[in-house]
């Protein structure tokens, strides 16, 4: 089954429904939040600012990094060598307190795909909140043992001569994929390329789609 994930850059507006949640979870969240605010562990406005910061991180940031790397070989070299510094300088964001970041390059011979079998490690600084499937037991269990089957569920078929490398984010680093630049994009501007890059291609479960003629 093919799934379209074009333009999932737009963060969906949050919804105020607790679908399938236990009532005690809702109470516990409120109790902890109120208590920790009363205790000056944090303030209500710090929570609000943190939410805004989190919402400001979304896959468009990653897409801008990818597009620049496609058009500027020297930038790409810096990105693969020291991702954090290259991303900070391009996007003007501060990654000092976020986990280390490694960008892995997909080529015609080697296709990286990212997962976290132990929890949900994800390059949030450049891709935002991980999709639900990334955190699901199914993805976390299966990608390392049957990656081609899992990729097929995303509609991605890779030739046998392409090495599939599953990267399990086990420790202090997060990984982002630099996907291959698709064909027929030679004349596109950098901004047009940004719009082409999907979140899922930067996780490695899909390829960047060729532009529609």
């Amino acid at each position: 089954m093919a799934h379209e994930h074009h333009h999932d850059h737009d963060p969906h507006a949050p919804v105020n429904e607790a679908h399938g949640m236990r009532p005690d979870s809702v109470l516990l969240e409120r109790a902890l939040r109120e208590l920790l605010i009363e205790k000056n562990v944090f303030t209500a406005s710090e929570i609000q600012r943190q939410i805004e910061l989190t919402e400001s991180r979304n896959p468009e940031l990653g897409a801008r990094v990818v597009a620049r790397a496609w058009v500027d070989p020297r930038y790409k070299a810096r990105l693969l060598e020291d991702a954090k510094a290259a991303i900070e300088s391009l996007l003007g964001i501060d990654l000092n307190l976020t986990p280390d970041l490694i960008v892995v390059e997909n080529t015609p011979q080697l296709h990286h795909v990212i997962c976290c079998t132990l929890c949900s490690c994800y390059p949030r600084a450049v891709l935002g909140i991980p999709p639900a499937w990334y955190k699901s037991p199914e993805y976390r269990s299966r990608l390392v043992i049957e990656p081609r089957a899992v990729l097929a569920e995303f509609g991605t078929a890779l030739a046998d001569d392409v090495e599939v490398r599953v990267v399990d984010s086990t420790a202090d680093t997060r990984y982002m994929v630099l996907p291959r630049r698709p064909r027929h994009t030679e004349r596109m501007s950098e901004a047009e390329l940004v719009a082409l890059v999907t979140r899922d291609s930067m996780i490695g479960v899909t390829l960047v789609p060729e532009p529609q003629p």
Partner: peptide
Amino acid sequence: EHNVTISAAIY
């Protein structure tokens, strides 16, 4: 499994 590798960070 044809042409598959796994990469992980190990202490």
